[in-house]
Simulated scan of single mutants.
Amino acid sequence: MAFRISRPIVEIDRVAGEVAKGNFQARVRGVRSHDEIGELARRMDDMVVGLNERFHLQKFVSGGTMLAIRDSTGGIKLGGQRRRATMLFSDIRGYTAFSERVDPEVVVEMLNLYFQHQAEIVQRHGGDVDKYVGDQLLAVFQGEDMVGDAVRAAIRIQEQTAALNHERPEWDLALGIGINVGEVVMGAMGSSDRMDYTVLGDNVNLAARLCSHAGRGRILLSESARDAIGESAEFTTSALAPITVKGKRAPVPVFEVWRRETIDLPS
């Protein structure tokens, strides 16, 4: 009798232990009774299924979205708050010509490869991938050294992209990157049934404009981003000709940035 009672409990405990290790495929086996223990086993399986769905769902939303969900009480509501953040936009140069000469499956393979490398680097440097739009990536950085983190990530992304280009020269692709820092509105945008947790504002738009002006393998900074890293022993910046940006009356100062020890290397 004791064995008949303890065996299902041991099996449920086994599944709980597997779930704690991150194994969401674990299920309670051999417990089919119609008593309280059997009900507990079924509830355990239902919980694991739900956790597995949530685990995979996290891959489709940004870290900022998940944090907002965890911090919310009574559900996420439409609206945003003003925050200071650093935005990094990247865009694949040569994408249009590439997509016209290869099969769609190869385009998807390429995008996944480039985005995977970029996302890993962004996360390692404390950033959050806000969204992918076509061949563009938007990452958001916050914190005391958010501009430095974004620049380090951008430089590492360019280095990794150069390595990818060496492996696949026939693709003939490169990245342009733009970085800006400033006040943005961060929050849930959309409708009550379908929201997008993101950042909006003029400073986001400026980061996107800088990205669009960045040539192959180059990283452009706004004046505020350049000022934030200051006279760094880690980076070297160079002023470029100001650019005309839609919505701005005067030309916008632009700076290019390198890692100091690689400044003399060809881009």
Rank of each mutant, 00 (worst) to 15 (best):
S222V: 07
L221S: 08
V28K: 02
G127W: 05
F89C: 01
V108K: 12
F3C: 12
Q81N: 14
D35Q: 09
A153R: 08
I5L: 14
V28L: 01
G17I: 05
I121K: 07
V181D: 06
V252Y: 01
A250Y: 09
G230P: 04
M195Q: 12
G17V: 04
L173S: 02
E105L: 12
G63P: 06
M186T: 08
E183L: 02
R82V: 07
L78D: 00
F235N: 00
D71E: 14
M87F: 10
A41D: 14
I12M: 03
L240I: 08
L210M: 13
K21C: 02
R54T: 15
P104G: 09
G190E: 12
Y114R: 01
F115Q: 09
K131T: 09
C211G: 14
H117F: 01
S191C: 04
E53T: 15
S72P: 12
A41Q: 00
A250P: 02
Y132P: 03
A225P: 02
P266E: 02
G74T: 03
R226M: 12
S192E: 11
G63S: 05
G178H: 04
T86S: 01
D71C: 13
R42Y: 10
N165V: 06
L57F: 15
M47F: 14
Q136M: 10
D46V: 15
R14L: 01
D227C: 02
E183V: 10
Q158N: 11
G17D: 01
G126L: 05
D13T: 07
N203K: 14
K248Q: 11
E105I: 09
V147P: 01
R152S: 05
R260F: 10
I263F: 11
I76T: 04
I92R: 10
M1C: 12
Y132N: 02
L164T: 07
I179M: 03
D264A: 15
K21A: 09
S222E: 05
F255K: 08
Q142M: 08
G217I: 01
E36C: 10
T244P: 04
V257Q: 08
F115P: 00
G75I: 13
Y197S: 01
W171E: 05
D46A: 15
I12H: 07
I5P: 09
G30N: 12
L67A: 15
A26K: 00
K131L: 00
A163C: 11
F89D: 01
S62H: 06
V184R: 06
Y197P: 08
P266W: 00
R27Y: 08
S90G: 01
A208L: 13
V122T: 10
I37T: 14
R218A: 01
Y197L: 14
A20R: 06
F89Y: 04
R152D: 09
S232F: 06
A239F: 06
Q123Y: 08
A188F: 02
R152L: 06
A20V: 10
Q25C: 08
V254C: 00
V185T: 07
R194F: 06
R43F: 14
K59D: 15
S72Y: 13
A68Q: 03
T262V: 10
G178C: 09
V48N: 09
A188D: 07
I9G: 03
P104F: 06
N165I: 11
A41N: 13
R249Q: 03
V122W: 06
D172P: 10
P266F: 11
K77Y: 10
R249S: 12
T86P: 04
